[in-house]
Each structure stands twice: as structure tokens, then as C-alpha cells.
Amino acid sequence: MYMVLKDTKRDTFKSLIDYSSLGLEMGLSVAIGIVIGYFLDRFFKTYPYLTIIFTFFGIGAAFKTIIILIKKMQKEDERNNNK
């Protein structure tokens, strides 16, 4: 199926996959942050401080995925403009 598509459509399809994976990855980043913080808290018995800190780390990771994607978008735009 992928082989049949033309070059431009292929690029569209690829970026579609990139963008559609953003939502899931953002949500999971926050969830993983919370889970790591929760278990560290249970281990060190410091509830709730580490949970809060790691929640913010998770949010930071989520934003980092957006930033990486934006950089990728800009690169693709430049490449398309140079064509």
C-alpha cells in the first residue's frame, strides 16, 4: 500500500503518523512521571513531594515531545521550500 503512494503523499502519510503519535506519547509521559514519583515516594516514605516533582518532570517530557516535533516540522518546511 505504502509503495503505491507517490512521493508527496508518502511524506504526508509519514508526518500523519508523527503527529498522531504525539497525543498518546504526551499523555503517557505524564502518567509515567506520576508512577515513577509515586513509587519513589513509597520507597523513601516522603509522600507527596517526589510525586509532585516527578509529575512536573512528566509534563516537561510531554512538552519536549512537542518541541522535537515542531523542530521536525520546521526542517520539513525548509526542505519543501527549497524544492
Binding site: 498518546l24 506519547e25 509515567i32 518532570f57 517530557a61 519536549k64
Partner: peptide, 21 residues
């Protein structure tokens, strides 16, 4: 100290999202 946990969480989110999707 700020970036290492963020990167680690980001890297753990990848296989989780792959498998879950």
C-alpha cells in the same frame, strides 16, 4: 539534573506508546 529525568521519562514513554497503540 533537570534534563536527565525528563529524557528518561520521554524514552520510557516510547515503548509504552508503541505497545499500547
Amino acid at each position: 539534573p533537570l534534563m536527565v529525568p525528563i529524557e528518561l521519562i520521554g524514552h520510557f514513554a516510547r515503548p509504552l506508546s508503541l505497545g499500547l497503540r
